[in-house]
């Protein structure tokens, strides 16, 4: 809006350059500066808060500033949970998180992208399509615990997967599929229709057009959206607790049907223990979770820069 105003102002000043008082212009410039300062303040405030929180967590986990105990040790990665803080580690939770998230990607990504392609390129614009579209948008806003309840009944009980990694990953996949669909559709829609027309003009079929023209052009946006959706799933606790992911798991899963735990559950459990040292362990867990999350987000940025095309 301000950009439009500025344009308008420019056009006016060209025409009525002489009539306008320069004091008025100064006042406008001043107002513009106020907005800039406010914007800066908002950014600094938001990022500053985040920085303080992260530094606090880093300090609690490693004792790097206040000279406390360093909890982010090799034992932390290589030990299972224990009632003694010095022996407790997050091995089961770290592996559980990595397994679950990998499976979630494998389930959700193909499904979400395929649905987006269908809705954008194939579906006729009728009441059924509109119904599906509305429902997908609504699903993207449903609280995650609802997916947990759904997963508990469908995957844990009906399919008899038990409280397994498979059931957990399927539940998380349900959670992120609507977000992937919405993001992928945006990206597919951004492909100029002139490219499609050109493809058709060369005699390509609809599928050939999708495969050789639309997907290559939109893959950057699709990957970014999907990875961001998955990084949301990493931090989810509620649906996994609902389907019955366990808290104390002193072993690594051997197959898809084994019980598991994930980092958010482990962190939550540690914060509620009586001994204060477990809070430091929780901070260490938060750091590991943050690292996994930021790595995945960095991958998203890399892929976007690599494959995104501009027109």
């Amino acid at each position: 809006m301000s950009a439009q105003e500025q344009l308008g102002v420019k056009a006016q000043t060209v025409e009525t350059n002489v009539d306008r008082g320069s004091g008025n212009l100064k006042w406008r410039h001043f107002k513009g500066k106020i907005l800039t300062v406010l914007g800066w303040f908002s950014i600094v405030f938001g990022l500053g808060m985040l920085l303080v929180l992260i530094l606090d967590v880093v300090n609690k986990a490693t004792g790097i500033f206040s000279g406390g105990t360093n909890w982010l040790t090799w034992e932390f990665f290589n030990n299972f949970d224990s009632r003694f803080p010095a022996r407790a580690g997050a091995k089961a939770a770290i592996y559980g998180t990595l397994y679950t998230i990998t499976l979630t990607i494998l389930f959700a990504f193909p499904l979400g992208v395929a649905a987006a392609i269908y809705l954008e390129e194939y579906a006729k614009d009728n009441w059924f399509t509109r119904l599906v579209e509305i429902n997908i948008s609504n699903l993207a806003a449903v609280p995650s615990i609802i997916y947990g309840l759904l997963g508990l009944q469908v995957f844990v009980r009906w399919f008899a997967f038990g409280r397994s990694i498979l059931a957990g990953a399927l539940t998380l996949a349900l959670l992120v599929v609507p977000i992937i669909i919405v993001a992928s559709r945006e990206s597919i829609r951004a492909v100029p229709s002139s490219l499609r027309q050109a493809s058709y003009a060369l005699g390509a079929t609809r599928w050939q057009t999708v495969w050789h023209v639309v997907l290559p052009q939109s893959i950057g946006g699709i990957l970014t959206g999907s990875i961001l959706a998955v990084s949301r799933a990493i931090g989810e606790t509620a649906p996994l607790i609902t389907i019955g992911a366990l808290t104390f798991v002193p072993f690594l899963p051997r197959n898809l049907f084994d019980v598991f735990t994930v980092l958010p559950i482990q962190i939550f459990n540690w914060t509620s223990r009586p001994n204060d040292d477990f809070r430091a362990l929780a901070a260490a867990g938060i750091l590991v979770l943050l690292t996994i999350l930021l790595t995945i987000n960095a991958l998203a940025i890399y892929l976007r820069n690599r494959y995104q095309k501009r027109y």
Binding site: A160, F161, G162, S164, L166, N255, L256, F257, D258, V259
Partner: peptide, 11 residues
């Protein structure tokens, strides 16, 4: 999974 489900799915 289907094959494995028989012996291990429900504990």
């Amino acid at each position: 999974g289907q094959q494995q489900a028989q012996p291990t799915a429900t504990t």
